[in-house]
Every structure is written in C-alpha cells, then in structure tokens.
Design a protein around this nucleic acid. Sequence first.
DNA 1: TCTAAAGTTCGATTATAATCGAAATTCCGA
DNA 2: TCGGAATTTCGATTATAATCGAACTTTAGA
Lengths: 112, 112
Amino acid sequence: MKMLHHPDRQDIQLSSVLYALSDPVRLYLVDVIHKSGERRCGDIAVPVVKSTLSHHYRTLREAGILHVRVQGTQRFSSIRTEDLEARFPGLLGSILDAYHASGEAERLTAPS
Amino acid sequence: MKMLHHPDRQDIQLSSVLYALSDPVRLYLVDVIHKSGERRCGDIAVPVVKSTLSHHYRTLREAGILHVRVQGTQRFSSIRTEDLEARFPGLLGSILDAYHASGEAERLTAPS
DNA sequence: TCTAAAGTTCGATTATAATCGAAATTCCGA
DNA sequence: TCGGAATTTCGATTATAATCGAACTTTAGA
C-alpha cells in the first residue's frame, strides 16, 4: 500500500507554499478544491495529461497545502485549512482573493 | 542612460509575484525594504555575490514588487505598496506576516 | 479471474532559473 | 581626466522543474 507523505504542520515552509501556488495550474486546483471541498483528483479539468497532473498534486501535497486520502484506486484531495491557518493565518485566503481579483481564474481552462 | 522597465499596475501577475517571493533571498530583501523604506541595492547583506543580487533585484522589479530609482551609479529600491494594494489588497501584508510567523526571517543571513 | 479505471512512476526532453566570475558601464569626485 | 565605486551584463555551469508518453500498480466490479 502506498504511503503518502504529508509534512507536519510545523514543517510547512512558506517558500514552498508560495512556490507551489505560483503555478497557474496548481493555483487553479487549489481554488477549485477550496471552493468545493474534497475532490477526486481526476475530476478537475486542467489542460495537462494525467502524469503531469499527478506531479502537480504531489507538489501541492509535499508543500503541505493538500491532504490526499486514498480510497481504492482513487485519491481525494482537500485543503489543509486548519494547518495552514495555524501556521500562516490568513495567507491562503489572501492569495485566493488575489487570484479572483486578478481574473486569472477564468483564463486557465481556456488554453491558447 | 539605462531605462528600467517596471510593469504597469494592471499587468502585475499574481503568479509572478508569488514566484518572486518564493525565493528566500528575495523575500528577505522585500521584508527589509518594507520595514525600512527605500534602500540602496548594495546595502542589504545577503549571502550571494553582486551579480546574483542584481538578478534578484531584477526579478522583483519585473514582477512588479519593487520600484527601482537610478541615482548616479546607485539604485534605490522601494516596495510598490500602492500598486500592490490596489491590485491585490492585503496580499503582501499576509505574506510578510507569514514570513515573520515562520521564523525564516531570522535564519536567512546565517548561511550554513 | 479478467478487465477496466485511476493514478503513479519512469525515462527522456526541454525550459527555466540560480549562481558565479569576469568584463563592461556609468557616474562621481579628486 | 583619471580612478574608483556601484551595479549590470555576459557567458558558462549547474540545478530544478514542467511536460509528455509508456509502462506499471492497485483495486473494483463484471
């Protein structure tokens, strides 16, 4: 059985969080999951193939942003809201607010 | 005379801002300038050589975070507070708060 | 028990960025 | 006008990351 590593709350690094969220695909995923709650990994449409998507989920998980739960062949992701709030109060909210304000949210799924 | 390019307020991209701030050296520079106001570029001690430091300043300027003013052979940098607040209200403050909360601020200048 | 579905891992490729040292630029002041 | 100071640019190297397709793993269900 695959053991997914999630960093402990106190090991979540600001640099890693900012880096993970600086990618448009990853920021989009986080925004969707934040709005809708836990989601199956493959259920969010993004313009990359499966293996790349898997890489993005791993980046988000290892940065401490997502919790990923295994259920059969499926993975369900949710935001580690409590841990993020405890470690960096208000940060994720500000970033997602900025994301909405920027209008980038609407442009992601429409590739060039 | 060297013309420094600064992106217009509306062209500041969230992804670029987050990326620029995901580097520990750059985040430290921004924190120091934010606290102390305009600073001469060479006056903040960081563990990289001059040319690398120059690269970091350019990254921050091109992301729209810093304004750089030329005076003779010197450059003075300041945070584009108004532009950032207008475009992404509260964002920089949250990130700097998180930076202080994380304790990374104290560890930067002490290299391994 | 076979197969299909969901996702990861692997290997390769390509792109981007961090870093350094050396050389160039620009301007100030003796 | 000459030299030094502040900084950038250049060229090279190295590191990191994004991406893809193919193969693999695991599990659910017919």
